[in-house]
Nucleic acid binder design. Structure first.
Length: 505
RNA sequence: GGCGCCGUAGCCAAGCGGCCUAAGGCGACGGAUUGCAAAUCCGUUAUUCCCCGGUUCGAAUCCGGGCGGCGCCUCCA
């Protein structure tokens, strides 16, 4: 079996082999914690989770590291090199308003003016979302998820090294800049070479901001700024690190190697963020390459449009799960499936209908598991990756994560009646180590979200339906049934009585 | 202006030169089941791959042109 991924660095599909046989070092750009993560963020995070789980299924040991950007960068960081509002202060404002309107649970955050509390508030929310959606790295927290604010010393060490090696300098404004001209490969990842950048600048870069830099594309590594809400001592004055340095420093620091295997992120990070990461990392280590494979997930659209706050289609994970998008709670497995089901390099269109489709697929897989468990008495047979269904699943994913192809192997199979239920259960379990929707976690709980309403009430209504039907009072039983459906249940009326199952979405 | 992606049935979507008279899912339709439904099960559902040329014995797949959609180049997953 050959694993192939599309590598942004070379713009082609290449065979994947880890540097060190058997072990994969993978770094993913994680969330900023100034707000709740939205579904677009999670498309990219779950994409990383998919790579990780798939590689593990093939027998590789995967070390997956992610960062949390909790340094309060500026809203206009790059343009004016640290102008604009501080994002932590913007967040503080919002939390205060939410507190007033009762949207923030009591005790969740004492003092919104403390940026560390703001960061913790949103970090906790992110981790909770990530666990609900089955992100493996979130279960390993805090071991594999690094906080930028706890790695300032590592960043400073890298900045010093860059200065020593002639890749960075202190500008006339006292800001430490990376000198892009010192790094000939700048632009290799994104195609934004210095020549291209110049011709494409189009008057967007104001001369005033550029006066202190050697080259307009030079970017900030450290800025001394006493007024910044979060600041640390440094050889270049008390201040804060640039946006790009954290990922370079943390990735190399955590893994302790010069070259990692895979680096992931959203497509928007290709430039400037990842371009700058390469310049910093290679500049400081002298290695030819920082990450051998760069994998980027494309953006998610909502009902055909780019997600944005102004369009009102900006959905957080919570919005979806708690029913604020569809008017009905959505099971986390359904959201996970929805965000995972289409190819990562295609723009996926998040729609209510898509969510509904996903609910059907997840239900099929969950029902199939239940059917197999009943038939096998819970026995799970060991199966090898050569089992036809599993092989087809793995082969499809090996081909640059062809999820549609992988699902095409699983879905039809999952509504057959298996001749060997224990074996089927074994296959499903293996497949589920990647899909993680039936059930959602690798632990054994079903990952059921609190969806409001009580299943006891539903059971009581079922009983009433049975009574009404026994009395041939169909008008009443129909009314009760509609009531249950309205409440979000699938109602099954059969010979053995009535049961109600909560809809997944 | 620079860099890049995409265009397959009502919708989502696979396909990587011959096994394609094109996977899989949703929907729709017909049937079983049901008091009627829902769920479930069985079956049907593109002679055709945006358009026009070209290469080839052979193209949805390669090349050229056109039309259409989208992303990045500025904080952004």
């Amino acid at each position: 079996m050959t694993i192939r991924f599309y590598n942004t660095l070379t713009s082609q599909v290449e065979e994947f082999q880890p540097v060190e046989a058997g072990t994969v070092r993978m770094y993913s750009c994680g969330p900023t914690v100034y707000d709740f993560a939205h579904i677009g963020n999670f498309r990219s995070f779950l994409f990383a989770d998919l790579i990780r789980r798939f590689l593990e299924l093939t027998g590789l040991d995967v070390q997956h590291v992610m960062n949390i950007t909790d340094v309060g960068h500026m809203t206009d960081d790059a343009v004016a090199d640290g102008a604009g509002e501080d994002k932590m202060q913007v967040a503080a404002q919002r939390i205060k308003e939410d507190k007033k309107s009762g949207k923030v649970p009591d005790g969740a955050i004492e003092n919104p003016d403390d940026p560390y509390q703001v960061a913790k508030y949103y970090t906790d929310a992110f981790l909770e979302d990530a666990r609900q959606l089955g992100m493996k790295v979130a279960f390993e927290y805090p071991d594999q998820i690094l906080h930028a604010t706890e790695q300032i010393d590592v960043m400073q060490a890298m900045i010093s090294r860059l200065i020593d090696r002639g890749h960075a300098y202190v500008g006339s404004d006292g800001v430490v800049y990376y000198s892009v001209e010192s790094f000939p490969n700048y632009g290799r990842l994104s195609g934004n070479t210095l020549d291209n950048l110049q011709s494409g600048a189009g008057g967007r870069v104001s001369d005033k901001n550029q006066a202190t830099k050697k080259h307009p594309a030079d970017f900030m590594l450290w800025k001394a700024d006493e007024s910044h809400i979060m600041k640390w001592d440094s050889p270049w004055g008390k201040g804060y690190p640039g946006w790009h340095i954290e990922c370079s420093a943390m990735a190399l620091g955590k893994f302790g190697v010069d070259t990692i295997d895979i680096h992931t992120g959203g497509e928007d990070l290709i430039f400037p963020h990842h371009e700058c990461e390469i310049a910093q990392s290679c500049g400081s280590t002298g290695a030819d390459s920082f990450a051998r494979f760069w994998l980027h997930a494309r953006f998610l659209l909502v009902e055909g449009e780019k997600m944005s706050k102004s369009k009102g289609n900006f959905y957080t994970v919570r919005d979806v799960l708690e029913g604020r998008v569809t008017g009905r709670p959505v099971h986390p497995a359904v959201l996970r499936y929805e965000l995972l089901k289409s190819h990562y390099r295609a723009n996926m269109n998040f729609t209510e209908k898509g969510l509904h489709d996903s609910a059907g697929a997840v239900k099929r897989l969950q029902d199939f598991r239940a059917k197999c468990e009943t038939a096998s008495g819970g026995e799970v047979a060991e199966v090898g990756n050569s089992h036809p269904v599993l092989k087809e699943f793995i082969d499809a994913l090996s081909d640059d994560l062809n999820m549609s192809g992988a699902l095409a192997a699983v879905l039809p199979w999952a509504h057959e009646t298996p001749s060997d239920p224990a074996e089927a259960l074994g296959v499903l379990s293996e497949i589920n180590t990647v899909l993680a929707v039936a059930p959602i976690n690798f632990d054994d709980d079903t990952g059921t979200a609190s969806t409001g309403g009580s299943d006891d009430d539903a059971a009581a209504l079922c009983r009433q339906i049975d009574e009404a039907r026994a009395a041939k009072d169909f008008a009443t039983s129909d009314k009760l049934r509609d009531q249950l459906i309205e409440a979000g249940y699938d109602v099954q009326i059969g010979r053995d009585g009535t049961t109600a199952e909560r809809k997944l979405a």
